[in-house]
Computed example of a mutant assay.
Amino acid sequence: MNKPNMEEEPQEMSFVDHLEELRWHIIRSLSSILVFAIIAFLAKGFVFHDIILAPSRTDFLSYRFLCELGERIGSDVLCITDLGFTIQSRQMSGQFAMHIMVSLVLGLACAFPYAFWEIWRFVSPGLYPEEQKNSRGAVFFVSVLFMLGLLFGYYVVSPISINFLASYQVDPSILNEFDLSSYISTLTTLCLACAIMFQLPVVVYFFTKAGLLTPEIMKLYRRHSIIIILVIAAIITPPDIISQLLIAMPLLVLYEVSIRVSSSIRKRDLKRLNQNDTI
């Protein structure tokens, strides 16, 4: 008499089961964003005075740093004493709408590591064991690069862009009175654009592992990439050359770092392939 098989083989999930699992991962991701958005909405005073509107005042950290740097080198050119603009809300529901939008953006920024981890939990089981091994730490590096890009956009690109746009005048008789929605959209666009663009090394890593990209290709098309980076920087930044260069410079550095990442992965794969051939 045959003994019953005590260990049942794991059953493959159906398409509907995969959709159900994906739905719960998305629900948990959106819930985390909503929780942080509610917290940001309730902390209205701190969020708007100390975070959103901080780059519009001369006591902002970046402006104070530039002023101290100017004092050390014996020049007052870098010291910003007046931004020369006011922020107004010209629509009845303008402040309330911006309050909701800012809360959602901050909710996304704060919950990004957890939300990405939830999506990664759904994707990673479908990878081969070798691919899972090679992608260890993906959530950590993606989250770190996202936060670094966000901080770079907030403390470097945004204040310099705001200062340039605020001080630019075609005629002294024209006053710079910006609408609240215009100011916030400029600030959030710059910060989120930097956060996304800082993911370049991660994208290059996975493309190299998939065999779609090699360091030789990246070196061959380096000049083309520089032009593309400058065009992207011109699209996502206000129409001033300073902010465009501030976006383009770190992207060029990240591109060179990505070449190193692709090269190291390529050498490791070739070394592993040679070891397998000799066995």
Results as ranks from 00 to 15, higher is better:
Phe41Leu: 12
Ile259Lys: 01
Ala115Phe: 04
Tyr155Ile: 07
Lys271Leu: 10
Ser173Ala: 15
Phe65Thr: 13
His49Glu: 15
Leu127Lys: 07
Glu177Tyr: 10
Leu106Glu: 09
Gly74Gln: 08
Gln95Asn: 10
Ser62Gln: 11
Ile160Cys: 02
Val144Arg: 00
Glu20Cys: 01
Glu21Cys: 03
Ser143Gly: 09
Ser135Arg: 09
Lys44Thr: 12
Lys271Cys: 02
Asp17Phe: 07
Met98Pro: 00
Ser225Lys: 02
Ile226Met: 10
His25Asp: 02
Cys191Ser: 08
Leu165Lys: 05
Gln132Asp: 01
Ala37Ser: 14
Gly137Tyr: 05
Ile228Phe: 10
Ile51Asn: 02
Trp24Gln: 13
Ala138Thr: 14
Phe48Arg: 02
Ile279Lys: 13
Pro201Thr: 07
Leu230Gln: 00
Ile241Leu: 12
Leu254Cys: 01
Ser262Val: 03
Arg121Gln: 12
Ile73Tyr: 07
Ser62Lys: 01
Leu145Arg: 03
Gly45Asn: 13
Leu30Trp: 03
Cys191Ala: 10
Ile259Ala: 01
Pro4His: 15
Asp17Tyr: 05
Thr278Cys: 08
Ser161Lys: 08
Ala97Leu: 14
Leu151Asp: 04
Ser243Leu: 04
Asn176Lys: 11
Leu145His: 04
Asn134Met: 11
Val144Ile: 15
His49Val: 11
Ala109Asn: 01
Phe164Arg: 07
Ala97Phe: 08
Ile229Ala: 03
Leu200Asp: 02
Ser31Thr: 14
Trp117Phe: 13
Val123Ile: 15
Met13Lys: 15
Leu104Ala: 15
Ile259Cys: 05
Cys79Val: 05
Ser62His: 09
Leu245His: 00
Met101Asn: 13
Ile236Pro: 00
Ala233Asn: 01
Leu212Val: 06
Pro201Val: 05
Phe96Leu: 10
Gly74Val: 04
Thr278Phe: 08
Leu53Tyr: 08
Met1Asp: 09
Lys44Val: 04
Gly137Ala: 04
Cys67Thr: 09
His49Arg: 15
Val35Ala: 13
Gly84Leu: 09
Glu68Ala: 12
Pro159Asp: 10
Met92Val: 13
Gly94Arg: 06
Phe152Ile: 08
Pro113Asp: 03
Ile279Pro: 00
Val203His: 05
Ser56Trp: 03
Leu106Val: 15
Pro239Ala: 14
Asn2Leu: 13
Ile33Tyr: 00
Phe207Met: 15
